[in-house]
Nucleic acid binder design. Structure first.
Lengths: 68, 68
DNA sequence: ATGTAGACTCTAGTCGACA
DNA sequence: ATGTCGACTAGAGTCTACA
């Protein structure tokens, strides 16, 4: 169980369900586009402030990203 | 709403309920004792791998730390 | 629109010491 | 047993460029 991969999968799933591009998500969350790409591919160990930003950008509570 | 403070408060509350010292938690989670202190005081922006380690050390699911 | 690579800055996380 | 300080190394997060 790799938490980075699990989290990245969640972000991708929720983003796709809302038909948002990585580029748009990056803009909404005020993060770099290439960083969103890395996150979704399980390559980055993001901080809780980043998790918080992405959760707000996708209008979801933080817990949504940690229900496995 | 500061996510660092909210998370730190959760860690402290759950740890105290289990009668575990910061020192013991640090040992269980394989983290530095002074870092646990900083986290509980809302001073550090921890990564999800660290959240994961602390959750496991306290035998709680990750979501427990993000229910506000 | 996405993945990756490289170079960069700032901070996460460690550690020793003292209150 | 906890808080804080200072110095350190590893890695978070940015940005440009190319496929």
């Amino acid at each position: 169980m790799d938490i980075k991969v699990a989290y990245g999968d969640k972000v991708k799933a929720i983003r796709k369900k809302q038909n948002v591009s990585q580029e748009k998500l990056a803009e909404l969350a005020d993060l770099d586009r290439t960083y969103i790409s890395d996150i979704e591919n399980g390559k980055r160990n993001v901080s809780i402030e980043t998790v918080f930003k992405i959760a707000n950008a996708l209008d979801k509570p933080m817990v949504s990203f940690f229900e496995f």
